[in-house]
């Protein structure tokens, strides 16, 4: 009975789940770099590269797995090259350069008609992708990102984000970590793009444009950029809410935009942090009741 109702719910929502998983991968690709203090939005460009590569190879008659593997390898290679090129850039300059890269990919996709089909995009891609491989990839990505958040590696990333010169003095090879995070980001973006193309069968050159950058960034910021769980939360909310809130309809983007302003200003840890704070609230209240001064002394700050 229960199983039957779950499976019928699943059948009715399979597309939603697939979308959530794909966007989660894309959100992870943004989160993994932001967490390491690398302002890269290159993952969106690699979303496009991944989708075109996998789709075109598949249409040439390659089998599914080699097509995806080839796309990933290409993205690793390109990602590493891009990381080498952009190694000197930091912060806002890097953000701007990677946004430029994303849009450049779009320009190439639109204009290299011989390869990409130009403005019309690619259609008739064999629908060879199922939910399970995407699910497994997403779980794998979560495990990887979870590992990166813990232990020496996680602390190193944190150190680089908070104070790179200090991290250098702690003998952390900051540029190696930055490269590593950058390439992981490229691969995750690439997989999201490839899966999307193979699942839905069409690509348009405008798929990976400014809107996708905004969407991916919104997911990560709204959910919380400090943890993969925040990115996942953001991906779920921003994929699922538009379907639920059809009455709000086209005003939804307005809500996202407003939410981003509010969260970035008052709650940089995103909804995940808010959720955690809420869960800790009872414990904090008990503490407060026992010794009111212990809490009052912390967190006081004059503007």
């Amino acid at each position: 009975m229960a199983i039957a109702s779950i499976s019928s719910w699943y059948a009715g929502n399979e597309t939603l789940i697939q979308n959530i998983l794909i966007y989660a991968l894309l959100a992870f690709s943004v989160q993994v770099v932001l967490r390491a203090g690398v302002f890269s939005l290159a993952g969106i460009g690699f979303y496009a590269i991944g989708s075109y590569t996998a789709a075109l190879l598949l249409k040439k008659g390659w089998p599914t797995v080699p097509s995806i593997l080839a796309a990933v390898l290409l993205c690793i290679l390109l990602g590493y090259l891009l990381a080498l090129l952009l190694v000197r850039l930091r912060d806002l300059y890097l953000a701007m350069a990677t946004v430029a890269f994303d849009l450049m990919v779009g320009v190439v996709a639109t204009n290299w008609t011989g390869l990409t089909g130009g403005p019309l995009g690619v259609t008739g891609i064999p629908l060879v992708m199922g939910t399970l491989p995407i699910f497994l990839t997403a779980v794998g990505a979560m495990l990887l990102l979870g590992l990166l958040q813990r232990g020496v590696l996680g602390r190193s990333f944190e150190a680089i984000r908070e104070d790179e010169p200090l991290a250098l003095t702690l003998a952390i090879d900051t540029s190696r970590y930055r490269h590593f995070a950058f390439v992981i980001s490229c691969v995750l973006g690439c997989l999201a793009g490839a899966y999307h193309a193979l699942l839905f069968g069409t690509i348009e050159p405008t798929d990976a444009g400014f809107e996708l950058i905004v969407l991916a960034l919104s997911m990560v910021i709204i959910g919380g950029f400090r943890s993969w769980a925040g990115a996942l939360l953001g991906a779920i909310l921003l994929t699922w809410l538009p379907l639920e809130l059809t009455s709000v309809g086209s005003w939804l983007n307005l809500v996202y935009g407003g939410l981003m302003i509010v969260l970035a200003t008052w709650l940089p840890g995103g909804l995940l942090d808010a959720l955690r704070a809420l869960l800790r609230l009872p414990a904090r209240l008990r503490l407060l009741l026992r010794s009111p001064s212990s809490l009052a002394a912390t967190g006081e700050e004059r503007g």
């Binding site: 932001l34 203090g37 302002f39 912060d91 806002l92 953000a95 984000r161 908070e162 905004v214 960034l217 919104s218 910021i221 086209s250 005003w251 983007n253 307005l254 996202y256 935009g257 407003g258 939410l259 981003m260 302003i261 969260l263 970035a264 200003t265 940089p268 700050e301 503007g303």
Partner: peptide
């Protein structure tokens, strides 16, 4: 409130993305 420059820059960038969405919408 965000004395670390990098965090402040990121937050302001995000705010501006949000504002672009709101105004455009």
């Amino acid at each position: 409130h965000f004395p670390a420059r990098r965090q402040a820059e990121l937050s302001m960038l995000v705010v501006s993305v949000g504002a672009a969405t709101v105004i455009g919408e």
